[in-house]
Design a protein around this nucleic acid. Structure first.
Lengths: 227, 227
DNA sequence: ACAGATTTGAAACGCGCGTTTGAATCGTGC
DNA sequence: GCACGATTCAAACGCGCGTTTCAAATCTGT
């Protein structure tokens, strides 16, 4: 089960290593993932990583780049101009970000970004530059369209509020699981008012978008109330 | 600098190990922190951890318990009943949570919780049960006071929106640092519309509280508009 | 002051890690 | 069909880890 191999016949060793690395680095992190384990899943020799990538660190950097590429190819980032209103754009962006963070094999890009945040490696700067900056700039365009007259700092705070709400559902995943476990053990009564609760992604995107739009308009109300 | 010792004369070995463990587990995580390094900072023998705590895992669990105890003793969680209005209680809770997450030695409790989320260990369930559940239940009381007529699921979503906004400022810390680095290297123009920006904690608590109150009232408007 | 229990200390053990080595194997152009 | 570069492979190396061992030092009660 956990040691299933990456299909040996359709890819060359380099590709198989990248796929196996994606999976195992996301599962266990840079330090805990062992080259031997990755090579086993890729049905390759332990020396293969060093031959194809030089060392573990450069290999990891390649894996991050690959994960980014695959995610963005599969789910292109939504741009402000594609939507009739900034409200629609915000909702689409939230939906897109939640998908990047959580779907497709539990979102390897999201998991790896979360790991880099908890435990930054030398690859973090590149990851931010390549993956995170474009996400944030796109959101910033949308926020600016929604709050054209707000101060820069207000926009930043709002942007961060939106991102924070989305990220929660990536970071809190293990907490959801732990709470299920505690309930099963009877350590936490099932009728306890919910600590946390999972919901459908559509519904979640709707909630975050409308919660945030209300928040946005409150902290930077339309100028004057004129018109 | 990084190997400064924990004051040898005022505590016994057990306490010194716990203090050193707090620091080093928060800095480097369970797997990456080595017993030898922790014992060195505590000016103790490598065998001391095994003698006093059995093994590394039980030692780690003790460290988590200690960190929790210290944080909660220093900053008691604010309860709904202490405040004149639920709005005040929400703002106080947000402020308290941000402090737990970020101040006092960069918030060892917050850092360790973030690490457990990115990379859960066997100690996670206990941590959730002891530290996280009470925080969430207290917030839940406040949300319930603010939205007495909302459905349970609406309250949960709102609660999670509030928590997510706060957690962002713990999880994104390394991103702030990375962006500074990228700017220094000229890889990111200094006039780029901000990706992320740091702000004063007071101001931040105010923003999150008012953004959230607007969001809360929007997703669950006062019933009917009648009195 | 001394016996017995507790705590500290230096050294060693076994293990898994990332990496290196050098021979075997494969793929390809002549 | 053969030579030659690219790739794969098993084996080994050095290292740092968590842990164990057991003797020395220190504490404690009488």
């Amino acid at each position: 089960m956990s040691d299933k191999a990456v299909n040996r016949d359709e890819m060359d060793t380099r590709e198989r290593l990248l796929m196996a690395g994606m999976e195992i680095f996301a599962e266990r992190g840079f330090a805990d993932a062992s080259i031997r384990q990755i090579c086993a899943r890729a049905t390759a020799n332990p020396a293969a990583v060093n031959y194809h990538f030089g060392d573990k660190e450069r290999f990891y950097a390649e894996v991050l780049a690959t994960v980014h590429l695959r995610a963005w190819k599969k789910r292109p980032i939504p741009r402000l101009a594609e939507f009739p209103t900034p409200d629609d754009a915000l909702r689409a962006w939230v939906r897109w970000f939640l998908e990047i963070l959580t779907v497709d094999g539990a979102g390897p890009l999201g998991r790896l970004m979360a790991r880099e945040m908890a435990d930054p490696s030398s690859a973090l700067d590149e990851l931010i530059h390549r993956s995170m900056a474009p996400m944030m700039l796109t959101l910033h365009e949308i926020i600016t369209a929604l709050l054209p007259d707000a101060e820069q700092e207000t926009r930043n705070l709002c942007q961060q509020s939106v991102v924070g709400q989305c990220l929660f559902y990536r970071h809190a995943q293990p907490a959801f699981d732990a709470i299920d476990r505690l309930r099963d053990q009877g350590l936490m009564p099932t009728d306890t008012p919910a600590l946390l609760s999972r919901v459908d992604l559509e519904q979640l995107a709707d909630h975050i978008a409308s919660f945030s739009l209300a928040g946005l308009r409150h902290v930077a109300p339309a100028p004057g109330g004129s018109r």
